[in-house]
Simulated scan of single mutants.
Amino acid sequence: MSKRKHLAIYYTGGTIGMKPTATGLAPAQDLSELVSPIMQEFADHFSYDWFVCQPLIDSSAITLSDWKKWLQWLDMHAMNYDGILILHGTDTMAYTANILALARPLLQKPVVLTGAQHPFAAKNSDASLNLRTALAAFKLPQLQQTVIAFNGYLWSAIGSSKVSTESAAGFANPHFGAMGQWSAHTGWTKLNIQTTQPNTSDDLPRSIDPSARIHSFILTPGANTDMIAQSLSHNPPDGVIVQSFGNGNTPDDPHLLQAISQIGKKHIPILNISQVAQGRCAAIYAQGHALRQAGVINGGKCNLETALALLTLATSNHWDKEKIITILQQHHLI
């Protein structure tokens, strides 16, 4: 038998460990007692240490300060373990997964996030399957990256999104697909884990500035582009995400383009991404030419979660446009 792997389990809160209260579901401290029987099923493969984030939070309340604290926790403990399991609320799990993947690209060990649509103690909860899927992922020797394990599937952090609140199939990765499918009967099937060579010349570490302000604007037919232009001109953020149509197309509104051009001159990064789930910003249509000329960065296959994580790190670490483009290329987004 191969040597048992030693895992760190970091419980941050979320539905998986919630219990009913007078005002609704809220995180509870004693999740370790509920998951213990499932951990025993994997006792031949793993030993583990249990850590609890204080305070536990509903993931919809997550802040940049939380991410900074969690990265500090990861830096403190990762070297002592063969893998990290993070129990997290589903609302912002994909955002956190992207932050971890982009902030610690040289970790070279599995970081697996999972949670649940229903509390562990609830009838017919999906929590047991999700936890078993996550634990089974640590058996994969080729897995050396940050992923989401959910509903029997493994998803790469980069490009993942929460896609449902109504079913157990809560997550997907429209561009890159699933990395594998697991069940207790068949084990892992349809494996497609792409290994990447880290850029050892990278300017690590990558920190988070809790005061970083990233503004995201979604364009819709008839959207008040003057309002967006006013916001950019009079309250310029540290970074901007434009969720445009289709392949990156936007209205040729002169006020909007001028505002974007002006903040671009201040070296504030502007990332253009498609609002389509499987969309890709590309220089295809003339309609998007004016925006490209105004100095925006083509986000390629970036979804909102990846874009937000990337610009949060970019502004926190003073990356220039070329550095952002390099990272997009490294993760096969452009």
Rank of each mutant, 00 (worst) to 15 (best):
A134F: 01
M76S: 13
A149D: 02
S316T: 08
H332T: 14
K69V: 12
F245A: 02
Q145P: 01
W155S: 04
S316K: 07
G239A: 15
N303L: 06
A157K: 07
A157N: 07
Y11Q: 01
A26N: 03
F51M: 04
C302I: 03
I228G: 03
D238Y: 06
T15R: 10
D91R: 05
L100H: 04
S128W: 00
N173V: 14
F171L: 12
L257I: 15
S59M: 13
G89A: 09
F217N: 06
C281F: 01
T250E: 03
V296I: 15
S201K: 09
D58F: 08
A172P: 03
S244N: 10
I193A: 08
D75E: 12
G246K: 04
S231W: 05
H255G: 01
Q258I: 07
N272A: 14
A8K: 00
Q197H: 03
L34Q: 13
I270R: 07
G14T: 03
T23I: 11
K301P: 00
K162E: 06
I260K: 02
D49P: 04
D58W: 07
I324W: 06
T146F: 03
F42E: 12
T250K: 01
H45Q: 15
K162A: 11
T92Q: 08
H234F: 11
G13I: 09
G83L: 07
F171C: 13
K19S: 11
G177S: 07
S274K: 07
L100N: 05
A314Q: 06
Y153E: 10
M39A: 05
G187L: 08
N192M: 11
G248N: 08
L135V: 02
Q258K: 14
A212M: 08
R292I: 08
D126H: 08
R4T: 13
K5Y: 04
V242H: 01
N199H: 06
W50I: 03
L85E: 00
L191I: 11
L56A: 10
L204N: 00
I148V: 14
G299R: 04
S156D: 14
H6W: 02
N130V: 04
A8E: 02
A127I: 00
N249F: 00
G180Y: 10
L102Y: 06
K323T: 15
E322A: 15
G14F: 02
S207K: 11
K68G: 08
Q293T: 12
N151F: 09
S160I: 09
S125L: 11
D238A: 10
